[in-house]
Design a binder for these strands. Structure first.
Length: 441
RNA sequence: GGAGUCGUGACCGAGUGGCCGAAGGUGCCGGAUUGCUAAUCCGGUGUAGUGCAAGCUACCGAGGGUUCGAAUCCCUCCGACUCCGCCA
């Protein structure tokens, strides 16, 4: 959620940011509605609090009058307080409506953008920051991962349709092994060398938890909602570990000495892919279920920008170790996701597409998520004085998407005979084998 | 699923319907004392809204209700724990 103070004090600034995101005018106009509601709310609150103050002091007097045996006077005051209570009830009923509307509108407003977010509307407008690695050259026509995987007998996209239809896959033999190897490789890298704490978390979350990170209320269609309630509340399958992991410390005041808290987490991810019908239908690039190792950091506003760059670097390290050529792009205004302030994507080279495809997205959310989650930290004392809690900054980034990494390996390391060389860094995780070879016909 | 106990501040833990935003303790911060450490003593120490400020208002798992007045009484829900049953 955007800081309500900014909304109240500089609504035009907020609108400017919304325009940079190419938001609809209908969204932009809600800024004015929120500001109006804030004003109305304030007069209501002032009146209500005033009445409550009167009630509190009257109640004390009534008690004293009773003790003094002045029942008649007490009775008169009681009537006055009751009248005041009626007015309070009216005001509170109106406040409920005002606040619900205000909250609903505010929850649908995306985060403000960082100054360095470039103009642009689509991914074609994302400027390239840097590229790494040599694009492989082939003396044969490189195959798509679907063909490479099928020939190796490790990827079965036909039988999986018998189970759950399109956008699911069955990995078999060394395919399943490579999936597991990549997960372990990523986790070992991020825990052993990059200082993350590994966590395992629930794969279904309550609705209010998904509100904390910003997937709800706006993007319910992108998630799989469970038909039954879970412990009394609507729940969703997680589309990313970001949701459960970022929410771990919600509603807490964290010790600044513990920041940044750096989590690495492996989870399956479930996405409905509503609205992407027809896109990437072939292969395992876009699945309803996929695996991902995610990095989630809770940090201070002062550190956040530098931490963001470091997280990008950690994700790049994973790709470098695997020898996958990639580039880093900066999201333009139209591409920065709802909750994000600034975002870099890592895109891996895919020979079959003759292009780079997203394999990691690393975002900085400022206090947008932590305001929703009420997640704060206590700054160090200044001149012996305890400081007020402040909202933490949250970051997250894929490190990496496992299925897409496998796609990149199969395509970039494929050989003319249909075999695939296994990147050296991955070999210890695959029983030391150096190459996947198609079975004899 | 059955039976029962319980949810209070960063943490532990008191709390008879008004004098409770809440005793006491721990932790933390400052000060005093002390060769160092340890110990002791004094003071301070929740969050949020509003206001120049004094102050006022709200929050004792969540939401309703009773009452002039609720941490305290009633209802519903959520959560934790113990025992029994079932079970990967």
């Amino acid at each position: 959620m955007i800081n309500p103070r900014v909304l109240a004090e500089d609504p035009e600034l907020v609108k400017t940011h919304l325009r940079r995101r190419h938001a609809d005018e209908s969204v932009i106009s809600t800024v004015d509605e929120i500001v109006e509601l804030q004003t109305t709310r304030k007069t209501h609150v002032l009146e209500r609090d005033d009445l409550r103050a009167t009630r509190n002091s009257s109640s004390k007097q009534i008690g004293a009058l009773f003790k003094a045996g002045k029942g008649a006077e007490a009775g008169e005051m009681k009537a006055a307080v009751t009248a005041g209570n009626d007015r309070i009830k009216v005001l509170e009923a109106e406040l409920d409506v005002i606040e619900a509307r205000m909250h609903d509108l505010a929850m649908h407003l995306p985060n403000l953008l960082h100054d360095t977010v470039p103009a642009g509307k689509t991914e074609d407008d994302n400027p390239v920051e840097r590229t790494w690695g040599d694009i492989p050259t082939f003396d044969f026509t490189p195959q798509a991962h679907v063909e490479v995987g099928a020939k190796l007998g490790i990827l079965d996209l036909e039988r999986s349709t018998k189970l759950t239809g399109a956008r699911f896959a069955i990995l078999r033999g060394m395919g399943a092994r490579m999936e597991r190897a990549l997960i372990n490789f990523f986790l070992d890298l991020h825990t052993g060398e990059h200082g993350h704490t590994e966590v395992m978390v629930p794969y279904m979350v309550h609705a209010h938890v998904a509100e904390g990170t910003g997937q709800l209320p706006k993007f319910a269609d992108d998630m799989f909602k469970l038909a039954g309630k879970v412990n009394g509340e609507d729940a969703y399958l997680i589309p990313t570990a970001e949701i459960p992991v970022t929410n771990i410390h919600r509603e807490e005041i964290l010790d600044i000495d513990k920041l940044p808290i750096k989590f690495a987490c492996f989870t399956p991810c479930f996405r409905s892919e509503a609205g992407s019908a027809g896109r990437d239908v072939r292969g395992i690039i876009r699945q309803h279920q996929f695996h991902k190792v995610e990095m989630v950091w809770l940090t201070t506003p002062e550190r956040a920008e530098a931490d963001h760059h470091q997280m990008v670097d950690h994700a790049e390290t994973a790709l470098k170790r695997l020898g996958i050529p990639y580039r880093v792009v900066r999201h333009c205004g139209g591409e920065v996701s709802f909750a994000a302030h600034k975002c870099f994507d890592l895109e891996a080279w895919l020979p079959s597409q003759d292009n780079y495809r997203e394999i990691s997205s690393v975002s900085w959310f400022t206090d947008f998520q932590s305001r929703r989650m009420k997640m704060r930290f206590r700054p160090a004392p200044v001149e012996g004085k305890k400081q007020k809690p402040r909202l933490v900054h949250t970051l997250n980034g894929s490190g990496l998407a496992v299925g897409r990494t496998m796609v990149a390996i199969l395509e970039n390391y494929q050989q003319a005979d249909g075999s695939v060389i296994i990147p050296e860094a991955l070999r210890p995780y695959m029983g030391g084998i150096e190459r996947l070879v198609p079975p004899a016909e």
